[in-house]
């Protein structure tokens, strides 16, 4: 099986940030969008929608095939799943920020209090990631590269 990952299609994004909220809720202790902001330490969204210019851009882990973060991680916390996603074993993470130093997307955030790096884990326990489910513009596509090609590129 090939890697399933998030594809962000910037021309479809209208910057509603629903993905961020969905991600926050999913990765919060309370599982409540009303409570998350009050949590300590406060959870961080792992997808961040920015508007650097006229278009939106989602900063999110691209699950690179030949990842710089995996090679830079000095603890072995960043590794590839058997399918090829890049996943982060927070137990092993010591917060050295080597991954942050190399990720060219800025998709890994430092959780300073916890001394752990934080990045998209594709919510493998869900059928599709909540950020994708919440995107009304279908600017996020979750699937294998083949599926992307058939459903988006060949569209």
């Amino acid at each position: 099986m090939r890697v399933q990952k998030l594809f962000f299609i910037s021309k479809r994004c209208d910057g509603c940030r629903a993905c961020e909220v969905a991600c926050l809720e999913k990765h919060s202790q309370s599982q409540s969008i009303f409570m998350t902001k009050m949590e300590q330490p406060s959870p961080q969204p792992r997808i961040k929608v920015k508007r650097p210019g006229n278009q939106y851009w989602a900063t999110v882990c691209q699950h690179c095939t030949d990842s710089m973060c995996v090679r830079a991680c000095m603890t072995g916390a960043m590794q590839y799943s058997p399918e090829g996603e890049v996943f982060h074993n927070t137990n092993k993470c010591v917060g050295c920020w080597m991954c942050i130093m190399v990720c060219p997307f800025g998709a890994i955030a430092p959780l300073n209090e916890a001394k752990k790096a934080s990045k998209c884990d594709l919510c493998k326990d869900e059928k599709i990631p909540p950020c994708v489910a919440s995107c009304s513009r279908q600017a996020l596509f979750y699937g294998t590269p083949e599926e992307y090609e058939m459903k988006v590129a060949g569209d």
């Binding site: 095939t65 030949d66 995996v70 090679r71 590794q79 590839y80 799943s81 058997p82």
Partner: peptide
């Protein structure tokens, strides 16, 4: 178990 080198990507 995960892996640290994806050899497929190296070819």
């Amino acid at each position: 178990m995960g892996s640290y080198v994806r050899t497929r990507a190296l070819t």
